[in-house]
Design a protein around this nucleic acid. Structure first.
Lengths: 126, 126
DNA sequence: ACAACTGTATTAACACAAATAGTACATATG
DNA sequence: CATATGTACTATTTGTGTTAATACAGTTGT
C-alpha cells in the first residue's frame, strides 16, 4: 500500500492533490532522495484513477524539480531534497510575513499576536 | 466609479474575486456598517459582467454574513462589521499557528523565525 | 399614478478544465 | 521474449463558471 492517497470528493483537482501529497511526504522525510515512486499504472490502479491523471501530476512534480522520471525505468524523488525543503521554508516565511502584515493592518494588538505565537510554538513540542 | 474591481484574466472565478474584494474593503474600513453596495445591474454594467455573476457573489457574501440584501431596496454591508473583522483576525491567527507548526516540522531554527518575524513586523510601520 | 429602479428566480446555451477511456510507441528488465 | 516502464495522442464525458434573455414583486422619486 502506497503512502500516496487522494480524496475523490474534494473540490481540488485530483492531480493537484497528488502533487501536494508527494510534496508533503518529501517535507516530512517519508520520501528521500532517489526513492522510487509508484509507477503511473500501478498507482492509477491502486487509487482507481485514470493513468493520465497520475502522469499529469508526475509531470507537474518534475517541472517543479521535486521528482525526475526515466522512460522505461520509473519515477524517483529528486536527488536534491535539501533544496526542495529549503524552498518550502522560504514559502512559509513569505506566508508568515504576509499574515503578520494583514494582522497589523487590522489593528491587532502586538501583545496578543506575541501571546498567540508563543502558545502555538509550544503547542506541539516533543 | 466603484471600489470593486475584477481581473477577467485571472483563473479564480469572477464571483469569488468579487467576494474577496468586498471582504478586503470591509477589512480595510473602506466599507462600513450599512453602507450600500452597487446594485446588481449597475455593477454588472460597470464591470462588463453578467448580472447573474454579481448576484452569485452577493448571495455568497450574504451567506457569510458580510452583507444583507433587501428586495427592491438594495444590498448593504452587514451591521456587524466588528464581528466580521474579529472573525478575520481569528482566521489569521489560525493561519499563523499552522505556518509556525509547519516551520517547526521542517526543523527550522527558532532564532531565524524570530528574526524574520521581527523584520516583517517593522517592515511596514507608519 | 407612474416610470424607473431594486433583489430574486428561472431556463437555456456556451466555454473551459478536469477526468476518463482507449490505444500506441520505444525502451529497460529479468 | 514476456512484462513493465514513461510517454504521447485523440476522443469523450462531466462539472463548473459564465453569459443570455426573461420575468416577477416590491420600493422609490417625481
Amino acid at each position: 500500500m502506497s503512502l500516496i492517497t487522494v480524496d475523490p470528493r474534494s473540490r481540488t483537482p485530483i492531480y493537484e492533490q497528488l502533487v501536494d501529497r508527494v510534496k508533503a511526504l518529501v517535507y516530512a522525510g517519508d520520501f528521500k532522495a532517489d526513492d522510487p515512486l509508484p509507477s503511473v499504472r500501478s498507482l492509477a490502479s491502486e487509487l482507481a484513477i485514470n493513468p493520465n491523471t497520475i502522469q499529469r501530476a508526475y509531470n507537474a512534480l518534475e517541472a517543479e524539480g521535486i521528482i525526475y522520471s526515466l522512460p522505461a525505468r520509473g519515477s524517483f524523488i529528486s536527488g536534491n531534497t535539501e533544496g526542495v525543503i529549503e524552498s518550502r521554508k522560504n514559502e512559509l516565511f513569505v506566508a508568515l510575513s504576509r499574515t503578520l502584515r494583514q494582522l497589523k493592518e487590522l489593528g491587532c494588538d502586538p501583545e496578543q499576536i506575541k501571546t498567540v505565537m508563543d502558545l502555538a510554538w509550544r503547542e506541539t513540542n516533543d
